[in-house]
């Protein structure tokens, strides 16, 4: 069965009788995008699950206000990034942790089986990414794994393309430095 188009989902959502059906289609289409974007930022599955639920409820409440200035995926990703960054700030406050101690907390909280990758280098790469500040981590992963265009990222982060390029560059330097402590490039 082909994936429904955004236009089709939005037209169903506009009708009160088919609103729930439309939202189920939207969830099936975008749940992985939401979850993995959240997971990259908050790292732990339980936190990513909380963020995903919050994001979906926000989408439900505000989808009728979506004006189509960007693609639906960009709009959803923007909500997701903001929600995940807010979630981290709240959690840091709740646990009374500084940025550094929160990173340590994430590293310690990771279960041993956090990645199923058999490749040790990839595992080290993931560990290096966890140590990046949350927003930089979001920029880095979005660019590195998804190769999201800077123009689209600019809409998601409300930041200029040049600032995002600089952020990605600095993140890459940090990741390389972290990896070089374990490997010789």
């Amino acid at each position: 069965m082909p994936e429904p188009t955004d236009e089709f989902i939005l037209s169903l959502f506009a009708n009160s009788k088919t609103k729930e059906q439309a939202f189920e289609l939207l969830l099936k289409k975008y749940q992985r995008t939401i979850y993995y974007n959240a997971r990259r930022i908050v790292t732990l599955h339980e936190d990513a699950n909380d963020v995903t639920q919050n994001v979906c409820i926000k989408i439900w409440r505000h989808l009728d206000k979506f004006r189509g200035d960007s693609s639906l995926k960009t709009w959803i990703t923007k909500i997701c990034v903001n929600e995940a960054l807010t979630y981290i700030e709240k959690k840091k406050k709740l646990l009374s942790l500084s940025d550094d101690s929160y990173t340590d907390f994430l590293v310690v909280s990771q279960p041993e089986t956090k990645y199923v990758s058999p490749n040790e280098i990839e595992k080290l790469l993931q560990d290096a990414i966890i140590k990046l500040p949350p927003k930089q981590r979001a920029v880095f992963t979005m660019r590195y794994y998804d190769e999201t265009p800077y123009a689209e990222m600019s809409k998601i982060f409300d930041t200029s393309e040049s600032a995002l390029k600089a952020s990605y560059h600095f993140a890459m330097e940090k990741v390389k430095k972290s990896l070089s402590e374990h490997l010789t490039f």
């Binding site: 939202f23 969830l27 979850y35 956090k114 794994y145």
Partner: peptide, 20 residues
Amino acid sequence: KTENYQVPEGYFEQLPGQIM
């Protein structure tokens, strides 16, 4: 460039139902 995050089994099958 693949992220191999571990997710509980059947998570994405149950998620839409839970959210609905």
